[in-house]
Nucleic acid binder design. Structure first.
Lengths: 204, 204
DNA sequence: AAGTCTAGAGAACGATCGTTCTCAACGCAA
DNA sequence: TTGCGTTGAGAACGATCGTTCTCTAGACTT
């Protein structure tokens, strides 16, 4: 077992503990036990708890991007790709230990006293909006649609976390369909003169 | 200065400290200094820190309801009342120490280890949805619209908190207008046969 | 085989936290 | 004035936390 494998073991254990109980509720001793490493090795690989926290958040960022890409790429049309975002959320919300967006939670708990945490949370949200912006561009709708769809996704995460209702993702998806169609209508009536309501998928 | 006045002083100081720095970052000593009371009196009025936290959250709940009511009641038509929700958010987001929804933050930091906190956060979100449900009922749209509008408001709060962009409230409002109009169209074409797109405000 | 380096187990340390206790000062009834 | 209850200021306590240190055992080099 090399250093990188130890790192991954620690990050995986820390991610689960921090996510389910909060950051300040989990001490280094508990992390050592859960990861099955010595305190010495833990501090050798991560000089401080803050380093563990940041490594966990970076890992979560990667997993989010991968999971999202996977769902979006599996969808066919650009419109379906946009809606696949909410399918991704739905799958996530159904996991038994789902407890909201890890970055929102980290920002809430540590953002005010740890600027690195605040920064990565902001980056995460901004890059998600950018991601949606690219998908929105492909269906030929105005970029403001991306911001609207991001709000739905964001709201779904916190609502599902607090109320525990995984179906929240479906409500977000339904709202997204309405917003997408409305944006496409607008785009259609802007470029030409006027266009029939539904069905306005752009090219791939 | 009677007991109730002391309580309010303590709650006000705790609210500001907890909201801006997080709950576990603020100790009872700092709270004592900020509130200008003795530790003895603090513990006399609030037997434990958890009691202060719950009192703060209950106070925030009251302030949220009052502020929301104020904005909504100032609006004329039912449709404007629904949109006033986002005006309320906009004003809030512009406050300099805005740091997101206090209940989301509390849930993120303490919800996993403090069921009272998780409960009040859930109650807060559910009652907001119910509130929107009543407003939605008045414009004659389907109740699913309330869930959609709640997601926008929820997403706006976390997005504005993390990115710092107060204009997020305006994006949410624009999306809300689209969703409201679409819901009214649906309601119209259900009860009658078909109806013109915009302008379908119901009676007061 | 001797010496050197590494690592595990966990004790120890210093800081901080929530909470309680001490003690002196004060208000007030008799 | 004397005695009694209450209060403020802050020391003290016990627990916990992040971090470091000690001690020992084993692996590896020559």
């Amino acid at each position: 077992m090399n250093k990188e494998e130890y790192r991954q073991r620690i990050i995986a254990a820390a991610d689960r503990l921090y996510y389910t109980r909060g950051f300040s509720s989990v001490g280094m001793d508990q992390l050592r036990d859960a990861a099955g490493v010595s305190l010495r090795r833990l501090y050798q690989l991560f000089p401080s708890k803050g380093d563990v926290v940041m490594a966990v958040l970076r890992g979560r960022r990667r997993m989010w991007v991968e999971g999202l890409d996977q769902h979006v790429n599996a969808a066919g049309t650009p419109r379906e790709k946009l809606l696949a975002v909410y399918g991704f959320l739905s799958d996530w919300f159904c996991e038994e230990d789902f407890r909201g967006c890890g970055f929102v939670n980290a920002f809430a708990e540590l953002g005010a006293v740890n600027s690195d945490v605040a920064d990565i949370a902001r980056e995460h949200k901004v890059s998600f909006q950018r991601y949606l912006g690219e998908l929105v561009e492909r269906i030929g709708a105005d970029s403001s649609l991306a911001a609207q769809l991001a709000l739905l996704a964001e709201g779904a995460q916190t609502t599902a976390a607090i109320t525990g209702q995984a179906e929240t993702a479906d409500r977000a998806r339904e709202a997204a369909e309405v917003l997408i169609d409305a944006a496409l209508e607008r785009a259609g009536s802007d470029s030409r003169e006027s266009v029939s309501p539904a069905r306005a998928t752009s090219d791939a």
